[in-house]
């Protein structure tokens, strides 16, 4: 645990030094500029649009971070051979893999937390500006705490994607890893179609194959509750709990596989 913690902290430190957090500035500017422009445009519904925009931006920024840092975590160390001296220290390779993962998740969590604060600040400002005229027409209050549910689900998605990126980067090149990880993200959102393949195709084996893929590939669509939350529709706690359980188990499987591959790997 000590080793994992130290490796994780080092990942966080490096990404902060690498100016990864600059994206937060971009996020804040985007959100503020958008809210200013939209307030000129739409009839009292700008708050809904800001909510959508903020959540979408968090997810997109997080996705790019997860993929591009995630694939670099291991492959960069191998490519630059910094791993040689690291692995000669009294650590296990599995601890290296898990430490790297925890470090990136930590970085993402801090990032998302800061974005959430900025998000609520903009929403609060919008509510203050709007005065009492529009508010009765809103589906939900501006600084709706339920939005945190969507943020939490975004975090879960990013954690899964990070694990996918790490998995690929233990055995393939950075470019290929990036492509595959984005592919998994997209598939993860279309997954539900695979389950209903029999509606399109008549072949039994193909349907079974599609069904198997549905269960094996990461299923991210159910983790996307942005629309529900923005429209103040109910999102039961049990549903969120199931999503969390799914994500954690899936991540555990990916990390186990990553550790195994990494453990047996030669560093030429």
């Amino acid at each position: 645990m000590r080793v994992i913690r130290h490796i994780a902290v080092n990942v966080f430190k490096e990404s902060v030094r690498d100016k990864v957090l600059y994206n937060l500035v971009l996020f804040a500017i985007l959100l503020m500029a958008a809210s200013y422009l939209l307030s000129q445009l739409t009839a009292g519904q700008d708050i809904k649009i800001i909510k959508d925009l903020g959540l979408a931006a968090m997810q997109l920024f997080g996705l790019f971070m997860a993929v591009f840092i995630g694939i670099g975590l291991v492959s960069k160390e191998v490519e630059r051979r910094s791993i040689y001296s690291l692995l000669s220290k009294p650590i296990r390779r599995q601890e290296f893999v898990i430490g790297k993962y925890v470090g990136l998740v930590l970085t993402l969590a801090v990032n998302l937390a800061i974005m959430t604060v900025a998000y609520y600040a903009v929403l609060g400002y919008m509510a203050w500006m709007a005065g009492s005229w529009f508010k009765p027409g809103w589906e939900a209050p501006a600084m709706d705490p339920a939005l945190l549910k969507a943020v939490a689900m975004i975090m879960l998605q990013l954690m899964v994607i990070t694990a996918v990126a790490l998995f690929f980067s233990t055995f393939s090149s950075p470019m290929l890893s990036a492509g595959l990880t984005f592919g998994f993200y997209i598939v993860g959102h279309f997954n539900a179609d695979l389950k209903h393949f029999e509606a399109i195709i008549d072949s039994r084996p193909v349907v079974y194959l599609a069904r198997a893929l549905y269960y094996l590939l990461p299923n991210l669509a159910p983790l996307d509750v942005k629309a529900q939350v923005v429209h103040a529709l109910p999102v039961p706690a049990a549903y969120l709990l199931l999503n969390t359980a799914y994500a954690f188990v899936y991540i555990a499987a990916l990390l186990t596989a990553s550790s195994f591959i990494f453990l047996r790997r030669d560093f030429k």
């Binding site: 209903h196 049990a238 549903y239």
Partner: peptide
Amino acid sequence: QVVRGRTYGDTAL
């Protein structure tokens, strides 16, 4: 996934 699908459907809610 199966439990979630049975209870809430395949997509988000």
